[in-house]
């Protein structure tokens, strides 16, 4: 009987053919001398037949897959189209003076860099122009129509993200065009290094400016990000010598590490993503406050 109870749970699987070879052989051996299990197998085989028979004439309707694909395409198109529409709707709401002023500053940067043959100017300028532009994209002080915008069904973080896409995208194109202009007197590989040099800092500085603008205000956001960015260009060795700083080596080491930070695009971009998430949360809270006040 011990054998019998050991095998009884396997009988449905024996009938359905899902036992492995060793289990199946052992069970076949057991069945030769256990009439109770044979009886069970017979019942399960009847059941298996009936279950299979009931499904015999069921053909999957091929229209189901076509309808599923149509639904998938519809959703995909919908998402892309809605995102495009949202971005387009936000273009007129971005402060108008941002477009020419960013372009003008970048143009001046290109001219100076060309004259003095010093591309570091562009590398320094591009993140600053972008950060200042991003700092003015949201909030009641920058957007008198914000309350009206928030009255729509679109959530504040989507509005924020759409404006960030527009302004960051615009400044990215400007900086790329300016760097492209450097091809006139620089080889392509150096221009590529130039782009890598400003892309990480620009991304991080924009995200930091956005968070600070939402958290504190636009003016402070621009001031703090500029100081943070420009601090790396301090001549550490000279300052330490001139002011006879006691912990000179410590100060220089810190400054080197700080410069290294600004030269690590993956770290800067990763931090920027985190900051944008925080900005989305801050923007959402600010939107709720404004709608409640209204």
């Amino acid at each position: 009987m011990g054998d019998h109870s050991q095998y009884i749970e396997s009988l449905p699987l024996f009938v359905s053919g899902t036992l492995d070879d060793a289990q199946r052989r052992a069970l076949e051996n057991h069945l030769t001398h256990c009439s109770a299990c044979r009886s069970e197998v017979a019942l399960w085989r009847q059941v298996a037949y009936q279950v299979a028979d009931a499904n015999r004439n069921l053909d999957a309707p091929s229209i189901a897959v076509e309808r599923a694909l149509a639904e998938i395409r519809g959703r995909r198109k919908n998402i892309v189209w809605r995102a495009f529409e949202l971005v387009r709707a936000q273009v007129p709401l971005v402060r108008g003076e941002m477009w020419p002023s960013s372009a003008a500053v970048m143009a001046i940067g290109v001219i100076i860099a060309t004259i003095v043959k010093e591309v570091t100017i562009l590398q320094m300028l591009a993140p600053m122009v972008a950060a200042a532009s991003v700092a003015v994209i949201y909030g009641p002080e920058n957007d008198p129509a914000l309350e009206l915008t928030l009255a729509t069904a679109t959530s504040p973080w989507k509005i924020l993200l759409a404006r960030l896409t527009i302004v960051f995208g615009y400044n990215l194109v400007l900086a790329l065009a300016a760097s492209g202009g450097m091809l006139l007197f620089l080889p392509a590989n150096l221009v590529a290094s130039l782009i890598v040099g400003w892309f990480g800092p620009m991304t991080f500085l924009c995200a930091a400016a956005l968070v600070l603008a939402l958290w504190v205000n636009t003016g402070n956001a621009i001031a703090v990000t500029y100081v943070a960015w420009l601090a790396q260009f301090l001549p550490g060795q000279e300052i330490a010598t001139d002011f006879r700083l006691g912990g000179m080596s410590l100060f220089i080491a810190f400054l080197n590490a700080y410069r290294q930070f600004w030269s690590s695009p993956p770290v800067l971009v990763a931090l920027a993503v985190g900051l944008v998430v925080i900005a989305g949360w801050l923007g959402g809270r600010q939107g709720q406050r404004l709608t409640r006040a209204a």
Partner: peptide, 12 residues
């Protein structure tokens, strides 16, 4: 009773 085992197995 002799049962043909291959007959008993669904797989077979």
């Amino acid at each position: 009773m002799n049962i043909p085992l291959r007959e008993l197995s669904g797989k077979a």
